[in-house]
């Protein structure tokens, strides 16, 4: 049984300019102890999707899903207090900005022991012992001293380690890491990723890694979901994705990796992710896709077969070449 099942999750926001669909019918199945990555540019709705899962979106958001199930529990019908027993405990999350994600007014110890008290009902002595153990586990030197430190006294990398310690404090079955390394130095990024992978292996938890960094994906994930403008455009095991991308967007993402480039100019994908007011009529990627035909511009594609990574494309790529591509355009 999958640990997490999401079918057709959509999130719409009420904005001053009308309804905006930030996440459009995405599906995600995660097995226990699996590492899954969600990739996509900024604004593709990766964070919104997991925040919806955790119930952390503001009231302006409307979340709908056919299936939203964690560990057999239906999250669509669950009450808020019941959900609060799961999040932070069974299902935990770390965020992009370690420096602002910790409360500046409370010590590391206070913020770390809070979950232990609330979810596990530990007494003070147990809390302290476990907190020290957790800080040791995430590689913070002198853990006992650090308990009384405030977040501003620690570096970004150290704060992210504290965030990880908080997230794993109740031995979650699922850890969601939302761009955990984006705000950090490159050397620290690698350390934090290694730490996450080490903990994932030790604890046997599932890990969802949200990132826009294909390099991070290659190093960590087993399966990859590619998201674009709120839609899931492709999903594949990591090896297949890097070797044979099926969606033109995935291909373009991979082509823009510096190490894959042999030209003097870094390749990039021209244009930006469409927002609320400039959504194309057909395929959302069509304005930036160099395979786009009139059909792409007029009619939204449907998800392709599994062998094509469910690619949301009229002409999914096979070995880098679009299939069923109209002859006259290619010429």
């Amino acid at each position: 049984m999958p640990l997490l099942e999401i079918d057709n999750l959509s999130v719409t926001f009420q904005t001053a300019g009308g309804l905006f669909t930030a996440v459009d019918r995405i599906s995600l199945h995660i097995e226990p102890s699996e590492i899954v990555s969600i990739v996509g540019e900024s604004g593709s709705g990766k964070s919104v999707a997991v925040l919806a899962l955790m119930g952390l979106l503001p009231w302006t958001a409307t979340v709908t899903a056919d299936v939203l199930r964690f560990d057999g529990q239906d999250l669509t019908t669950i009450t808020k207090p019941e959900l609060r027993k799961i999040i932070g405990c069974q299902m935990a999350m770390i965020f992009q900005e370690p420096m602002t994600s910790l409360n500046p007014c409370f010590t590391v110890g206070f913020q770390l022991t809070e979950t232990l008290k609330i979810h596990l009902g530990m007494n003070r002595a147990e809390q302290k012992r476990r907190a020290i153990e957790l800080l040791e586990l995430v590689g913070i030197p002198e853990p006992e001293k650090r308990l009384s430190a405030f977040p501003h006294q620690l570096s970004g990398g150290m704060n992210q380690r504290v965030m990880i310690a908080i997230a794993i404090s109740c031995n979650p079955r699922l850890l969601i890491a939302d761009e955990p390394t984006t705000a950090l130095d490159v050397t620290i990024q690698a350390q934090i990723l290694d730490l996450l992978l080490k903990l994932q292996k030790e604890k046997g938890m599932s890990l969802v890694l949200i990132t826009h960094d294909m390099g991070v994906v290659a190093e960590t994930a087993e399966r990859v979901f590619v998201q674009y403008a709120g839609q899931q455009v492709e999903q594949q095991p990591v090896k297949g994705l890097f070797a044979r991308p099926h969606h033109p967007y995935t291909q373009a993402l991979l082509n823009s990796l510096p190490e894959r480039s042999n030209s003097r100019i870094l390749p990039s994908i021209a244009g930006i992710v469409p927002g609320q007011f400039d959504k194309p009529q057909g395929c959302l990627f069509s304005p930036r896709c160099h395979y786009a035909t009139d059909l792409c511009r007029e009619k939204p594609p449907t998800a392709g077969p599994v062998e094509f990574g469910n690619a949301l494309c009229h002409y999914p790529l096979a070995d880098g070449v679009p299939t069923n591509y109209p002859q006259e355009v290619r010429a």
């Binding site: 955790m54 027993k85 999040i87 602002t100 994600s101 409370f106």
Partner: peptide
């Protein structure tokens, strides 16, 4: 603020999120 989201992500109730984490700041 981000830390209020963190507090909610820990599974804390609204009283604790608002009365402790937000209020102190």
């Amino acid at each position: 603020e981000d830390y209020v989201r963190t507090a909610r992500a820990k599974g804390l109730g609204p009283m604790r999120v608002i009365g402790v984490h937000a209020l102190r700041n």
